[in-house]
Design a protein around this nucleic acid. Structure first.
Lengths: 194, 194
DNA sequence: AAATATATTGAACGATCATTCAATATTATA
DNA sequence: TATAATATTGAATGATCGTTCAATATATTT
């Protein structure tokens, strides 16, 4: 069994890894730098994460767990009031909470690793499956969508959301950003219609 | 003026860089390795690309230029026959040509650099603006879309395409892949309707 | 053909990389 | 309290990193 110290240290190291990757970029974040950032020798990091690959794999789990969290408050909300206005979750999907939750730069850097590492790919895939399942669960609560294929709908919605995030991350201008968000939100509402 | 040898060598180096990045991943592709791959000393590479940053910046230009090429045959086709069935370009957008044109791993690795480098971000942004303009040009040829906001439409279509590519890159199973493609194609066709 | 510019080589630089290891400090177990 | 297990340190490893430089070869211009 792992001790409390062990789990705390591991958490601390991954957290520090994430912070540094957010600040300097994943490709510029070495084990020595993480150590300096946290005030510990690199050898201690390698005591808990024997290789860099293992370390990165844990960073990815950390990120994906966090991303999954954006839906738990909605789901909880649903359990209580038994209905949620579509605006609630569409707003949430396009809210800044995502960016607050996980830095886009770190996220896409980690994502690009799926092409060279099957375990990472599977982990990303599982996250997205869960996200879609969660969304389906939300949609299923909506009376007006009773006759629709909510599984298909959640796929279609997410593709818009993910494409939107990809595109929005290139836009610096605030006003333009908000304008685009409005467009893509409407695109999601259109999917919920008819 | 740059000589022929100079431009040829530069092209060769960037091409070799891309090949190696495709094979081993961008983060594992050093200048020394590119040199070994091409049978030339690293110093020669640095003669033409004084820093690694400049080298990467040229790789990105190389990639983005290639991606833009997917639409030129369609545009040409349009110029000749003055009409194109929507299936033509929707099929093309979801075709394997994209993946053949540029490796997804290299593409997303380069994309993740936009968050730390404004020049790269601007370059990516410009590419996507051009892609949307090209698509608008195609849509404008379609009689049935005369009354529609084709600029908006091309934004909406591309968001689906980009979200779809992101999602599809996690799927290994061939049959499932094709099934998903069908769904996302229909999503685009729905946008072209009513 | 001489002079100049460009292309190419290979050795070397210090910095940093991930990783190893033996020694010491701390904590948990007996 | 003695023993065993875990946590932590700091120095050292060889490999590789991007980059520099002086020397040589080749091509271009005069």
């Amino acid at each position: 069994m792992t001790t409390k110290i062990s789990t705390d240290r591991k958490r601390e190291i991954i957290q520090g890894f994430y912070e540094l990757a957010k600040e300097k970029g994943l490709e510029n974040t070495s084990i020595a730098k993480i150590g300096k950032h946290l005030g510990m020798p690199p050898s201690l990091i390698m005591h808990y994460f024997p290789t860099r690959e293992i370390l990165i794999s844990h960073l990815i789990s950390f990120i994906l767990k966090r991303l999954l969290k954006i839906y738990t408050p909605i789901i909880k909300e649903l359990r209580v009031q038994n209905y949620t206005d579509p605006h609630t979750f569409v707003d949430r999907m396009f809210s800044r909470d995502w960016n607050l939750l996980i830095d886009d730069g770190v996220f896409y850097s980690c994502f690009s690793l799926i092409f060279r590492n099957d375990r990472i790919k599977k982990e990303y895939r599982n996250l997205h499956l869960k996200l879609r399942e969660n969304l389906k669960e939300i949609l299923d609560q909506d009376e007006k969508l009773k006759l629709k294929d909510t599984a298909l709908l959640s796929e279609q919605i997410f593709v818009v959301v993910e494409g939107a995030y990809y595109y929005l991350s290139m836009i610096d201008d605030q006003d333009l950003y908000e304008e685009k968000v409005k467009i893509f939100k409407n695109q999601v509402y259109d999917l919920l219609k008819y």
